[in-house]
Design a protein around this nucleic acid. Structure first.
Lengths: 200, 200, 200, 200
DNA sequence: TATGAATGAGACTTCATTCAT
DNA sequence: TATGAATGAAGTCTCATTCAT
């Protein structure tokens, strides 16, 4: 019991998760390169040795942030894409959901597009591969609608997907929780823009 | 004369511009934080003392990169927006031009959204202000069309602008010069998407 | 019973000896300072706690390596020196035997002269004392031959001993098991050189 | 002039050489692994930055120590071996000289055989290659005497060389400047032992 | 007898910047 | 206008050892 208390420092959350949470917040606020290991362990309430007990390097910590968010988003997309609905409703739902999820995890999103170049080529490749899978699942939805005629084929599906995700990534640059729009409202608007752009 | 030859290293380009060009390329390739002053001066063919003769700090170099690209893009947008054409043609031209210009300077774009947090609060504020001016000029075009009824008002103009610029920033992530589409083709497609999304 | 099986990891060798064997090999290969406790316990198939249960410190492990080899060599020298033979045959046998024994335990020899400075002054002193005893027993043989006239007295006996042992220590630098000479052949040659150098 | 004073800290010796001298002494006293960069720069009276201005790494410092002593000894050996004298006098002179030189630079010798395993494989290979060249020049002398009949051929020349150099390396283990023998006396004795061992 | 999470000190190295020339 | 040696702070990471279980 004493051990458990030490491990979680009285707040019930295990050390690795505390480290991950602290790192995510700091990376988003200051950038990966400007966040020192010292700051992370202080924010997590542990020592450097503990960090290196669980993570091989600072970079490993960054990779874990990526892995977690990628896993989460892929799961959600798969659920929406596999639903039993007309394609235009499935695409709209997926397009809106990724906006809400991204706003709910703005820190992750900010890190994603700012700090990828800090990953080693090997890890970078791995992240890109998972990212690619996500992109392609989304693209398949667009293509399905184009084949069935409910979406215009004027624009290549790839470009449509990058158009939408560009705006999603951009959220971390301008969205403020205390702004006039709720996450859901933003999501609805952006999904509308996408579907309108796809009208035949 | 010997001095002049030294200044331009035989290629006619003055030292400050050589430094700026080298810094731009390296910041884009490796990120601001991972690029050392030593690498920059080596790439530019000068020594550290020369860099600090022309620029007060490494950060000043970054700011210069920002200033240059902001100035360029604002000039182009103003030209398109002030043209004597119907609003939908002016918006389309501006929307397509920013895509071509961004692709022509992908390095600048990559730096822009990755390295802004390395600027001191003061400089950051200044860059954001100029960025805001740019955003607002673009938004004014959208609002003009909405008021005159050629664009739908279903989506707030601010959001429309962020939607488009999100996709522009995203270009540096996926566009490859050796890909299937020319810059102009990409620009046309993205401008089409925007205008279709604005159809009433 | 399960405990006993754990202790020996199914190969019948007790944990302390497994640790000692792993440490010896790693110290010889990488040096004492470059071998981490973690590497040793992994090579021995146990955990850190087990190591610190049997040995007080990493240094203790090193001392044990020294103690074992010193004990072994002293025993062998005593046996040869006390034999009932003419002094020149006893010296030759001892000189050749230390070569063969050293080659058979090249790891120990490599550690010996590379890592002694890692021992604390106290332990270092103890090792030197035992080393000295060994040296003196050998020197006594040389002096005995010098007094009886079968060896030349041109060179002080101390120097003769250091001359021979220098070449013995050096073995770990150049001897390779897959080379042209067997350990016994090397031993015979080196003993010959010593005895020829001692001819009156 | 102020610059020169700074560079040499008032004692006239340039920084790189001061660093090399300090490192040599400390590596010999404490071993490479137990000597911190901080200790070296303090002993040399400079800062860490200065060290890394001149040497790429701590290991580079070690390599420089090796390179210097190897160069010196090779030069001396070549001079003795190429002299216009009978082979037995040339071998004797070379064998005695390496003893005196080694005693004069006992620190270098101590480092040599203790710290070589700290060099990267690449640098280690280079050092071994130069070492090999030295060994072979010496061996050529022995073989010349064997062919002309002034030395016995009972022992392979390679082994004879290793025999002698073993005793040379061993000097750093036992020789003390305040002992009973001068460097020259030790050198004469060890050369005598070698030549007596080579008598036909 | 043995675990392994956690410590905390200290290691090597990098780097933007300064300054005498 | 330009050099480059030197600084000094800060960075990431390693590791022998401890201790509650």
């Amino acid at each position: 019991m004493a051990t458990v208390a030490r491990k979680t420092d009285g707040n019930g959350i295990p050390v690795p998760q505390r480290l991950l949470a602290a790192a995510t917040r700091l990376f988003a606020e200051q950038g990966y390169g400007s966040t020192s290991v010292q700051e992370i362990v202080e924010a997590a309430g542990v020592t450097k040795g503990a960090l290196y007990h669980y993570f091989g390097s600072k970079e490993d910590l960054l990779q874990e942030v990526y892995a977690r968010v990628l896993r989460l988003q892929q799961e959600r997309l798969d659920a929406f894409a596999d639903a039993d609905e007309p394609v235009e409703r499935r695409l709209r739902a997926a397009a809106a959901d990724v906006v809400v999820t991204t706003i709910d995890n703005l820190d992750d999103a900010a890190i994603f597009f700012r700090s990828m170049h800090h990953l080693s080529p090997e890890k970078n490749k791995q992240v890109r591969a998972e990212r690619r899978r996500y992109h392609e699942r989304f693209r398949a939805l667009v293509e399905e609608g184009q084949r069935s005629g409910v979406f215009t084929s004027a624009t290549p599906a790839d470009l449509v997907v990058d158009y939408h995700f560009g705006s999603v990534h951009h959220l971390s640059t301008w969205y403020r929780p205390d702004g006039p729009l709720t996450p859901q409202q933003v999501a609805d608007h952006l999904a509308d823009l996408l579907l309108r752009a796809l009208r035949p």
